[in-house]
Amino acid sequence: MKFKSLKIKLTILISLVLIGTVALLTFITFKNVDNRILQPIQNFELSQPAAPSTPTEDLSDVAPVVTSPAEEIQGLNKNFQLSYVYWMIGIALLGILICYYLIQKNLKSLLTLKNSVQDVNEHRLSSRIDLPNKEDEVGQLAHEYNLMLERLEQSFAYQKSFAENAAHELKTPLTTMKLNLQILDLEEKPTLDDYKEHHDISKNSINQLIDIVDQLLLVSNNELLQNIEEISLDLLIMDLVTLNETDAIEKNIELTHQGTPVKIIGNKVLLTQALNNIINNGIKYTPANGAINISYSKTKENIMIKVTDNGIGIDQKDIPFLFEPFYRVDESRTRSLGGSGLGLSLTKKIIDMHHGKIKVTSTLNEGSVFQIILPLTSR
């Protein structure tokens, strides 16, 4: 109903403008005709000498009354004015009909847009608006609306997938703890060693739950970059090597680093987390007696960090999805090695928040190279 009333209002408004324009043109035209035609004739008649007076006689029966040229032209002018008014009224009516048609045509597109907007909800984001004219303002508005729906649809799909994966990851350690408790219940006389075994398994499951929750909180936090400071990258990497040295020694993996001292601006806790995720993954997927090297160098504008290993490598088909939450290259193998499935996803988010880039090159059974490029602030 709102669109119909708008259509009527626009039609009335344009009609009033047309009628007012016609009336103004008519007034100006008639005034010009009177001034340009009648006035010279009247002036001419006034300039003629008066006829001599004669006795008054009744000549009505002898000859018809003769009208002056001014009176004849004035009569013709009235006929012209009447015809002109009719033509102007016709043109105004035609203009009103054309305006009504154009308004109805354009408001039909708006009505289609309104119905499409009403038809959209969280379960029906796939609908799109298809207007015949995509070049006018309404068509451009519909195009932007379709782009917004596409972004919303992708966002909802990502949110749904993330929630499902998070629930699945949280369920796994909970199921492990439940099974261990059930096994203890089934044993008639569990020994101290039985309790210790199931205690250790449950403890590992709890630690895995805590790790998943911590990673989820970091992924969902959009205010991570509040604490910005100057960071000595070489010292940060030395601390990471020390932190992961025990795990590397257990597998007899050589963990080395090299580079020149450099300072960058960023969040130290987050950058430590991002680099540690990559180093930790390298240790997990590098066989015994392997090697991992962390190198860093700087240019005029950037700093480049490379983590190179000679591990099992990554298939090329998996690389595009490597930084998606909960994505696993090999489900059975990665679960046996532990991890939340969020490490690399969180790493990419942290690098993106520091306006950096991360990319991977890898060859199966030969190893992988994780390369990080961050903006550099030299001091």
Rank of each mutant, 00 (worst) to 15 (best):
Q39G: 01
Q316M: 07
S336R: 08
L270H: 14
N204Q: 11
N267R: 07
T67R: 12
D194L: 10
M148R: 05
Y296M: 07
S378D: 08
I294S: 01
L216A: 10
K268W: 03
F80Y: 15
L240S: 13
L16S: 11
E72L: 10
N146W: 06
I8Y: 05
R335G: 00
L255K: 04
Y86M: 06
A70Y: 08
I12L: 14
N277E: 07
S127T: 11
Q316I: 08
F27P: 01
N244G: 02
P52W: 00
R379D: 09
L82V: 06
M88Y: 08
F44K: 08
H143L: 13
L131Q: 01
L6S: 02
E366C: 02
I183D: 07
E164C: 04
V262F: 05
E324F: 04
L192M: 03
E144D: 07
K171A: 10
D330K: 11
K7L: 11
T347S: 13
L25C: 10
I303P: 00
F3L: 15
N43V: 10
L38K: 01
L97T: 05
E57Q: 05
E245A: 08
N227L: 03
L364E: 02
G75W: 12
T363A: 13
T308I: 05
H143Q: 14
D130G: 05
L216D: 12
N221Q: 08
S378R: 02
V66R: 13
N180R: 06
P64M: 03
K160Q: 15
D330E: 13
